[in-house]
Design a binder for these strands. Structure first.
Lengths: 349, 349
DNA sequence: TACCGATGAACAAACGATTGCGCTAGCCTA
DNA sequence: TAGGCTAGCGCAATCGTTTGTTCATCGGTA
């Protein structure tokens, strides 16, 4: 058990409030130097730490943030979380982590629980379009930020990348390389990144005067397994594509595994582009060409937006980064050293 | 803002305590059916959720656990965390995640913060031998469990694998393959896994009547980068080893990257064994031979030990799993399908 | 001597929930 | 009709802090 203000007060023969003021360096009230020193000594001796629960109840803030993601096992979300913690920790916040596995029900129950816990803010990176739990979030008027994926109704505070442009750049790269039959392992139509990157994929074709083959677009979800599954369908078609844009790096990795199993060489038989530039992408062999986005920064910026809301009661802003193409060997043989260092540009609304 | 008991009490014309009893289904007191129904209706209408902070203060439990690890970006810890959350979530606990980056100072400050927050229990997977913050943990007498790494003084509640045996099996495998110059990229001497796996490495030599070359043992830490660094030193020696046992899969991955850069073929020029069997290990090419340990289970078992302590005031137990060798292509060409499905055995003290 | 202004610290009311205990009213029994 | 039992609910303390207000004391001044 921990020592409390009351106990210290008894030992120092003063009122608990006096101890509290010394411990918090309360500027509103002078304390006699002698008393102050006596109490400070006592605090040091006992290693007193105020009970955060009681403090939270009184001050109405818990100094806890929460991150809601599909799965921490996915390197994208691990990096994102690090960004959040690195932003939150120095400011005295701890961070709760909630995995939803992409299940709306689990997301809902997590958000309910977070609400009951009165966390100071929540960062959601697992939202859907028209997401009822996001709607719930808006209603509560507690600080929140959507990351990576947005929910199309309403202008929620947001940090992410320009997915439309990203999809377009990724596909444009393949077109520039001379590919004309390009496949797309897409995200879900219920998720903003899925919709937009797909739209970018189509836009790149239009710009180049190409006619995309709709049969080459296959919904793949966001995991390596689901990517592999979709890849098997795509690559076993009668007239398979010579290049594929995958909605995320993890899906691209699933695809590359299947291609390897089928004896296809990358990039000679199949060029592959991913999205996100997770750390793993550069360590793969061949290295994965992908759209770089500042994942870690997503997290730290999300925290900043959250704290802005906390401090100024303001409504959250929207920050969108411009993704950057990183060319590696999965599209260009021996490209290892041509991938320039990522420099992501930023746009705030 | 959330609705409180007091407000509901006014609206229902009863005392707050009555609302509380209905909300909690308090068995100790009868409520008139009519009243109960009226209140239940009100609860439903307003979606009342008790303030977790106030509740925590009164009941002296927060329903929050904490996990302290070096870095969630490391797949081992990501899997471990999932184990924890999957064990904790169904029981109504949320989980705080703290990354230390292996820095004792950050560990200390995190643990202090967790103590102030009065979390119900903490899971530490980043402890050192003779760790002052573990000593602190013991002193506080709050529930805690050490995972994967233990601290040699005292018999702390623990979940992990038999690292001595693991190191021995891994090295024994290389010896059986005919290797005689075997290198070891070791962990740190300040970490139990480092010490024990190294000892296992030596024991396997002794058993086989081999004399290990001490120059082939290089301290590599636990990250891919530090592994690569140490690997460069090891492989550039005048008489390099033909096989290496790396203290973790991440270190092995760093090693394999360097080997590739040096134009060495795996396993023909260099056989590699890792430890932990992180998901990544099987997806690598060549697949990584490694010691399988049930990472996810580490987490869920740790939660169980924690809750046992919470419920029965008992002192925590120690659970040690027996690691299993998984043979893949990094030691045996074309071994892809010989790696048997892991079946880990358990020993409880 | 009486009053006044600082100074230093105690008082007490929150924050929102939980829970043992006590009170009231109604009914039954003697 | 008085006493007792019980069902149903209110009372109030408590968890540990924070903070506006009040109170006592003391030195100095008129």
């Amino acid at each position: 058990m921990q020592v409390t203000l009351k106990e210290l007060a008894m030992r120092a023969n003063v009122h608990p409030s006096t101890i509290s003021r010394v411990a918090n360096n309360d500027p509103s009230l002078r304390i006699a130097v002698e008393t102050r020193q006596r109490i400070e000594e006592l605090l040091r001796e006992t290693g007193y730490q105020p009970n955060g629960i009681a403090r939270g109840l009184k001050l109405r803030q818990t100094k806890v943030l929460a991150v809601v993601i599909p799965d921490i096992t996915n390197p994208f979300f691990a990096a994102l979380f690090r960004g959040v913690e690195d932003g939150a920790s120095p400011r005295g916040f701890n961070v709760l982590l909630c995995n939803t596995d992409g299940l709306p029900d689990r997301q809902r129950s997590h958000l309910l629980s977070l609400q009951a816990r009165r966390v100071d803010g929540v960062i959601v990176a697992s939202s859907f379009l028209k997401d009822p739990s996001v709607r719930e979030l808006r209603r509560q008027r507690g600080p929140y930020v959507l990351v990576n994926r947005f929910s199309d109704e309403g202008e929620d505070p947001f940090v992410g990348s320009d997915d439309l442009l990203g999809g377009q750049l990724a596909t444009g790269h393949l077109i520039e390389l001379g590919h004309t039959r390009i496949g797309h392992l897409s995200g879900k139509p219920t998720v903003s990144t899925g919709i937009l990157r797909r739209r970018g994929f189509l836009a790149a074709h239009t710009i180049a005067g190409l006619d995309p083959d709709p049969r080459l677009i296959i919904e793949a979800g966001y995991t390596e397994e689901s990517g592999a599954l979709a890849a098997r369908r795509l690559l076993s078609m009668p007239n398979p594509p010579t290049a594929v844009f995958a909605v995320t790096d993890m899906v691209a990795i699933g695809l590359m595994g299947v291609a390897r199993q089928l004896g296809m060489r990358i990039p000679e038989d199949l060029a592959v582009v991913g999205y996100n530039d997770i750390p793993l992408a550069s360590r793969l062999s061949p290295g994965l060409t992908t759209m770089h986005v500042p994942i870690h920064e997503f997290g730290s910026v999300a925290v900043r937006l959250l704290l802005e809301q906390l401090e100024s009661e303001s409504v959250g802003r929207r920050v969108r980064f411009t993704p950057d193409l990183i060319v590696r060997e999965s599209t260009v043989p021996g490209a290892a050293h041509t991938g320039r260092l990522a420099r992501t540009s930023l746009s705030t609304e």
